[in-house]
Each structure stands twice: as C-alpha cells, then as structure tokens.
Write a protein that binds this DNA or RNA. Structure first.
Lengths: 222, 222
DNA sequence: AATTTTTTTTAGACAAGTCTAAAAAAAATA
DNA sequence: TATTTTTTTTAGACTTGTCTAAAAAAAATT
C-alpha cells in the first residue's frame, strides 16, 4: 500500500494534484510538462509508470487524474512542504519568499515520525506562511472561509489570510507596500471606474489596484 | 568551485572521509564498497567520476583520498548531518538511536542559509547527540580532549561525552543500563583479570565490561 | 466532411548509477 | 621466484528519467 516513491514521482503526483484542483478535470500531459518544466513525452512515460502503480488513472489521449492512493501521497507531500515552510519562517528567520526552494527539498524527506513531531513542535499550524492550508495527519485541510479581497464591500472589516499568486515578484511587492498576512483591514472606498480599493491596514491608509486585491484572500474569523 | 553534487556523490565523499580518518591512508575501493553496501566495480566507476571533478585523488589499484575540495564538501555534509541530529533530539523528541536514518536524508538538503540558520537556532552546538564534534561554518571541528573510559584510573572523575561504536545495538544497550551522554562518573574499581570497571554514575553503582568501557569517550572539562 | 493544426504518444537514444562476469594487477604463499 | 589467492578494474548490460524526431490521434478550421 505504501510505496517508496522517488522524489520525481512525488513531484509528478504533486503537480497532477495541484492542476486537478484548479480545473477539476483530467489533466493533460502538456500541462504537467509545463508545470514541471519538462517535455510531454517524458510525462507520458512517467504517467504510465504511475498508472501501473495505481497512483493515477490514465487513458491514452484523455489525460490524468489521481487515484485515492495517489491523492493521499500528494497531500502528504504538500503537508510536509507547508510544515517546513512554517518552520523556516517562524524559527529560522526566512522570509516568506525565500522558503519555497528549500521546502521543495525538505518535503521529500521520508519519516512519519519526523513529520508528525514537526507538526507538534509547530503547535499544529493550520496555514503556511502564504496562507495556504496545511493538511492534518489524516489529510484533511482546514476549511478556509475566505474571500478574495476584491469581493469585499465598502465598510467591511477583515483580515488578510492568504495570497493566490505566490510568485516571488508578488511577494516582494507585498513586502514593499507592507501588506502582511494577518493584517487587519477595512474597506474605505471602491473606485468604480477601475475597481481599485482604498483601505485601512495597520493604521495606514493605502490604495491598491483590482489586480492586487483579487490576489489576496481575506477572512472573518480565525 | 562549488559543484552541485548528487546525493550519491556526497555519500561517497562522506564514506571516503570517514574511512580515511581512521586509517590515515588511501582508502581501497573494497572498503568503500563495504561501507556503502555496494560493489567494488560501482565504486571504481564513481571514483573515476569524482576524480575528474577533482574531488578525490585516485590512482588505479592504489586507493582513494580526498582533495582539499572533496574534504571541504565531506565536512560540510557531516556538519549538516550532525546539526540535524541535534535538532531532532532536542526539539522533536527523537531518541539518539532513531536519528541517523532521518539525518541521512536531511544532510543532503542544499541551502547555506538553512544550515547556518539551523546552527544559530540550536545555539551553535559543538557536539551531536552521540558526542561527535560538529564542524563550524569554516569546517573546523571543536577539539575534543577526550579519552576512552577504559583508560581512566581508579578514583578519577569524569563525564561521558561520546561513543565510538554508534550501532543501534550499542545505543540500545546504553539506554538499558541508563548510561547517558553528559552523565558524571567516577571510577571505583578496576578488575585486573578482565578489566571490567565498577563505577558511580548518576548516584548508582554499575559494573561494565572492558568492551563497553573502550567504546565510551569521557572528558574532563567542557 | 475534408483538411489543417495542435496535442499526445511512440521509438530510439543518452546520462547516472548500478550490477555480474571476466580480465588484469597486486599481494600472499609456497 | 613461481604459483595461488585476493583485490581491483574493465566490459557489457540494466534501470530511471530524460530528450528529440517522427507518427498517430484529437481538435479546430475551412
């Protein structure tokens, strides 16, 4: 039941998982190739292998989806990735835009005890530094009752809890304008002609474009 | 100057390093093969490759030694291994006989910032949970002024600081008889016919064989 | 519906790391 | 020193994951 997968195999499962959750339908080999910066022909080969191990459902020319086993493994890898990100930011002084590359390596370390002890050491965090939910031991994600900032109405108060685009550029922008996860905000005004928003954030007043607002997640309670 | 080595290459360098320090002469391919649980023919292949990268000195039929570069990398990997061991025992509740396998994986994670931040987080430990010295950023090992327990004379007081044999069996034995690193001891008696020793350790009196005593390191001051 | 374009798969090749079996060199023994 | 034994290397093969180029299928366009 529990295979010993190579890092490459794990990366494929993770890629298929994340592509699947956005489109909710079988993923094309081309999309996977793009995500993993490889070629579609390589993907076809790997997908066949994963299919033999019953980690993905694969029908020629019809895309790929994860089996229950494959999904479990993918989620477990994501869990490790996000826990390590929390550790790096909280305890080792990493910035949130520095953690990804290192977490990509740490996520492949295999030890159930390690993962669960780390989880406990971090006091079972539910979100990573980017606001993405961390699956628990059983693979359940904390449900986020979140909205995109751009959907808030004038007068609403909320809290920034996550970001959609986690590119390094976007993270750097957020740092520059001092928008931090956890920051309390209040919508003061929405400009109807370009949908830019004026808001209070940490006692300061700033204006952000619709572009930015639609890449920030906010939520009401903890 | 700084290559991106595979985990396998790093493991070869580490193996060559540790074999070299005990014998202080060029290491045979057979010994390396034994250490890495592989075949001598595989070692020959790899050693040629490392030689081309100028990480080892290799002359056919005459064994292998590390170049300055190779030595640096080996020590850096050992540094990471031992730092992670400290982290696992101190913060994640691992026993000292559980850490090796996990540290073998963690030691290959590549990030200078990670290593040095971890070092700082742990407050620059000088010894790992087995009492082995941890090289600093520059690759310098803390000098241990240690002796083997069996060399102590009657009446001498000391402290257990390390072990020579770190096999799982030995570690388990130590746990069973409650010999811990850091424990203060005093030699009460030495049996001349079998060299077994009677000692005080943590307010208890125990007798240990010469076998055991010669696998324990002790030292005077910190 | 026929044709063109795009996507996906197949076929064959390559690099890394490993293995077995055989050959070559070194070491041990007679 | 000659011979036997042990160690080390070479040769050729296999696996994993990758690639390019060509073929096949699907989708889009006319």
């Amino acid at each position: 039941m529990k295979f010993d997968l190579s890092q490459t195999e794990e990366n494929y499962l993770k890629a298929i998982y994340s592509l699947f959750v956005v489109s909710n339908k079988a993923v094309s080999t081309n999309k996977i190739a793009e995500k993993l910066a490889t070629k579609a022909s390589s993907v076809t080969d790997m997908v066949k292998k994963l299919s033999e191990k019953e980690l993905v459902n694969y029908v020629k020319y019809q895309g790929v989806s994860l089996t229950e086993n494959g999904r479990e493994i993918a989620i477990h890898v994501i869990r490790k990735h996000r826990l390590w990100e929390v550790f790096l930011v909280r305890h080792l002084g990493f910035q949130w835009d520095e953690v990804h590359e290192v977490a990509e390596q740490l996520e492949h370390v295999k030890s159930v005890k390690l993962t669960n002890s780390l989880d406990a050491f971090l006091d079972f965090p539910r979100y990573d530094p980017h606001g993405d939910p961390i699956p628990d031991k059983e693979g359940n994600f904390a449900k986020r009752d979140v909205a995109v900032l751009s959907s808030l109405k004038i007068g609403q108060e909320s809290k920034i809890v996550g970001i959609k685009d986690s590119s390094s550029e976007f993270l750097k922008y957020l740092d520059k304008v001092e928008i931090k996860l956890g920051a309390a905000i209040k919508v003061l005004h929405k400009e109807s002609f370009d949908n830019s928003m004026m808001l209070w954030i940490d006692k300061k007043q700033i204006s952000i474009s619709q572009q930015i607002a639609s890449n920030l997640y906010v939520k009401q309670q903890d």
